[in-house]
Simulated scan of single mutants.
Amino acid sequence: MIWYTVLVLAVAAERMAELAVARRSSRWSLARGGVESGQGHYPAMVLLHTGLLAGCLYEAWAAGRPFVPLVGWSMVAVVVAAQALRWWCIGTLGPRWNTRVIVVPGLPRVTRGPYRWLRHPNYVAVAAEGVALPLVHGAWCTAAVFAVGNTALLTTRIRCEEAALSAAADSRPSPGVRA
Rank of each mutant, 00 (worst) to 15 (best):
V76P: 03
G55N: 10
R100Q: 15
Y58N: 01
H120D: 03
V148N: 04
P134C: 06
S166M: 11
P175C: 03
R112L: 01
P43N: 06
A179F: 01
N98T: 05
A63V: 05
R15H: 06
R27Y: 05
A62E: 06
S25V: 09
N150I: 04
W87C: 00
L53D: 02
R112P: 01
G51N: 07
G51T: 11
N98R: 07
S25K: 11
G113H: 13
W88I: 00
Y4V: 00
N98M: 04
T5G: 07
C141Q: 08
V80M: 15
V103N: 07
R23M: 00
A128C: 10
G55H: 09
L70I: 15
L47M: 08
V110R: 02
G130T: 06
R32D: 02
E36C: 11
G55S: 09
A128V: 11
R157V: 05
N98Q: 05
G55W: 11
A10K: 06
V131L: 06
H137P: 04
M16S: 05
R159L: 03
H41V: 11
V46G: 05
A84R: 15
L165P: 06
V8C: 05
G38I: 08
W61C: 02
A44Y: 13
A152N: 04
A132S: 10
G51F: 13
A60L: 01
L19H: 09
A12F: 14
A31F: 10
V145E: 01
R23V: 01
R100W: 10
L7C: 09
S26Y: 10
V103F: 09
A84H: 08
A54D: 01
L154E: 06
I158M: 12
A22M: 04
L9I: 09
C141M: 06
R109F: 12
L9H: 09
L52N: 09
E129I: 12
L118S: 14
C56P: 08
S29A: 12
A127T: 10
A125E: 10
A143C: 12
L48M: 08
L154Q: 15
T99M: 13
A167D: 14
W28M: 01
V76L: 12
